[in-house]
Design a protein around this nucleic acid. Structure first.
Length: 293
DNA sequence: GTTGAGCGTT
């Protein structure tokens, strides 16, 4: 995935797609992906772990069955505010700089704290972060984080009470066939929003999980049938997050908890090769043909 | 100088 990408591959799944763009992390500028002879070339620093938006030559984003245009989705996401997020399980040695460095991959940070003992200065092993953008926050909340050699959890702090409506951003995809790969599902479901995780249980069990960064996107797909690789799959709500595991008896025998079977997502170590996946999302805000170089 | 579920000195 770190080589070039064929435009034909892209437009096969996204008719009308004419390129890719991304936001430069340091300059915040929108950059286009170089297109030459039908090949999309990676940025100078590689694909990295960025969000790539598909650019269309004309306005043919998702053909919604439920309305000609969907401004409701856009206005709805405007009033989503970030809250502080608690980061649990930090290594004792991790500093705020370490946290900032790690979490900035998800978006701009407004605040980073590592809670320390006042006298000794020793970290208490947890901290807080706050993102500027809600999408960054959602992305973070749905992932486990490898920070300095330890798995850390990011959650909404208890002190926030129930103010933050937590809806599920993960969907269950039933009737999958064995030849469906994670890439197939990623490519297909990225049409509807940014996909941050695809999971296919092994051995084959005819279902998969797709996690979106936006829970509303996930919810909007629930109950629908979708055609993937010429097969009708059914999308429904994944069971609520694994909160308590003591109630695993009876008919709910399937274990949805896959926290420990996640693909490696993010790591602080810099000698790793870049994550092999990159994200697509439909561009909702850019004018048509805004393919910059 | 140790530790590993939790919830934020100002």
């Amino acid at each position: 995935m770190d080589g070039t990408l064929l435009l034909s591959t892209l437009s096969a799944q996204f008719p009308g797609a004419c390129g890719l763009k991304y936001r430069n992390e340091s300059t915040c500028a929108i950059r286009g992906i170089r297109l030459n002879d039908g090949h999309l070339f990676p940025p100078e620093d590689g694909w990295l772990d960025r969000v790539y938006n598909i650019v269309f030559s004309k306005d043919n984003k998702r053909k919604s069955e439920d309305g000609p245009d969907n401004p409701a989705v856009k206005t709805k996401r405007m009033d989503k505010k970030c809250t502080d997020l608690i980061v649990l399980g930090l290594p004792w040695k991790s500093t705020e700089d370490d946290l900032r460095q790690y979490f900035s991959q998800f978006g701009d940070l407004l605040m980073v704290q590592v809670k320390k003992d006042l006298k000794s200065g020793q970290s208490k092993g947890f901290g807080f972060v706050r993102f500027q953008d809600y999408e960054s926050q959602q992305k973070c909340l749905n992932l486990r984080h490898m920070i300095d050699g330890r798995w850390c959890d990011v959650r909404i702090p208890n002190s926030k009470g129930g103010s933050q409506h937590q809806v599920n951003s993960k969907v269950f995809v039933g009737r999958c066939t064995e030849d469906m790969t994670e890439d197939d599902l990623l490519t297909y479901f990225s049409k509807f929003g940014e996909v941050i995780d695809v999971f296919i249980p092994k051995p084959f069990r005819a279902f998969a999980f797709i996690t979106f960064s936006d829970p509303d996107v996930a919810q909007s797909l629930c109950g629908e049938d979708h055609i993937v690789k010429n097969v009708s799959v059914h999308v429904s709500n994944a069971l609520p997050k694994p909160v308590d595991k003591h109630n695993n008896s009876g008919n709910n025998s399937v274990n949805w908890d896959r926290q420990t079977t996640h693909l490696p997502i993010h790591s602080l170590s810099h000698n790793d090769s870049p994550p092999p996946t990159f994200f697509f999302s439909l561009s909702l805000s850019l004018p048509p043909s805004s393919f910059l170089f």
